[in-house]
Design a protein around this nucleic acid. Structure first.
Length: 317
DNA sequence: CGAGTTTGACCTGCGC
DNA sequence: GCGCAGGTCAAACTCG
């Protein structure tokens, strides 16, 4: 079964970041954008994907099988600078990391504040509500918008909707998506106290493409620990730079899929990548040197990445 | 019997 | 205010 993944977007959160700041002029192919804007839109998910200019991504050889819709009713993409700051200011946390992104912390704090502020009310209301009508199942949050967890989306060319990613998920909902014949499924991590959610839907323009959106951060290790299938360095180093992405890397996926994801992620973050010795490749080498040390460490860690990054990319070092 | 899925109803936010 | 669409809940159901 063929599965190809690409990171199409990152989170909508704002916080400190370990991501290097990509100048949009230097990295015109940044493909990250604010997910919250997506959520605010009434457009369908894939439709929104099409809103963004992903043509550079699509030019990547490894993504040639992934089609992204291009609609005539394209909305102007959000301000790049804003996107950049949002993405770059975010510091995602690894599932097992003690450091939590400010966005996540905000979300947590929001919940905590909500709990502190409304616990008494909620207790009373819930007690009464359960006994009254179904309409009062959820305590109303009055004075502030619901905070969203950071989100991370993948486009995966796969025949199965629900991709194995090492975590256990429980489906809690399914909704028909506007303008799409394919429903959107909602999953929640089965681990207690872990409120990571996942949305899975199939592209209506390319039914072979599954769009998986993760929301939140796992507060626990993957229930299925990697053994020999995927070198530990993959997750370790990839998550050090793209913790959220690594968070959701499947321990079962084939090696080329790992490479696929990493390259796609790099591409989505503005790293030009080509699997042939093209000028783009040289650009990759140059540009990655502009990255922060952490990123460099990630990219230069031959010992751990040489299996991921083709040798022709690394030999330029 | 427990865990997971299905599904209709309900909640919420947003645009008009 | 109203309608729409996304998101969530929870009872009923299925499965191992």
């Amino acid at each position: 079964m063929e599965k190809k993944e690409m990171v199409v977007k990152t989170e909508d959160a704002v916080g400190s970041s370990s991501f290097p700041c990509y100048n949009s002029n230097v990295y015109p192919f940044s493909n990250t954008f604010d997910f919250s804007e997506v959520e605010k839109s009434s457009l369908g998910f894939m439709e929104l994907l099409g809103v963004q200019d992903y043509s550079p991504l699509l030019e990547l050889p490894q993504l040639s099988t992934v089609s992204v819709p291009h609609h005539s009713t394209v909305k102007a993409p959000p301000d790049n600078g804003k996107e950049c700051s949002e993405v770059l200011n975010h510091q995602p946390a690894t599932p097992n990391s003690s450091s939590i992104s400010s966005a996540s912390s905000d979300a947590v704090n929001d919940e905590q504040n909500k709990t502190l502020d409304q616990v008494e009310e909620d207790d009373d209301e819930e007690e009464e509500g359960k006994q009254k009508t179904k309409k009062q199942l959820k305590p109303k949050k009055t004075n502030q918008k619901r905070q969203r967890e950071p989100r991370f989306a993948f486009m995966t060319k796969s025949e199965v909707d629900h991709l194995e990613d090492g975590y256990r998920w429980r489906k809690y909902g399914q909704k028909a998506v506007k303008n799409s014949p394919f429903p959107r499924s909602y999953y929640r991590c089965t681990s207690v106290s872990c409120n990571v959610k996942k949305r899975v839907e199939r592209s209506f323009t390319d039914p072979s493409v599954v769009v998986t959106t993760y929301e939140g951060q796992h507060t626990h290790p993957s229930p299925v620990m990697p053994r020999s299938g995927v070198p530990a360095g993959y997750a370790t180093n990839f998550t050090s730079v793209f913790p959220q992405a690594g968070n959701y890397l499947s321990h079962y996926q084939q090696q080329h899929q790992q490479q696929q994801l990493i390259f796609n992620t790099l591409s989505s973050l503005g790293f030009p990548y080509n699997d042939s010795s093209t000028p783009k490749n040289a650009g990759f080498t140059q540009e990655r040197r502009l990255c922060n040390p952490g990123t460099n460490a990630f990219l230069r860690d031959h010992g751990l990445l040489q299996d991921v990054v083709p040798s022709h990319m690394l030999k330029e070092e």
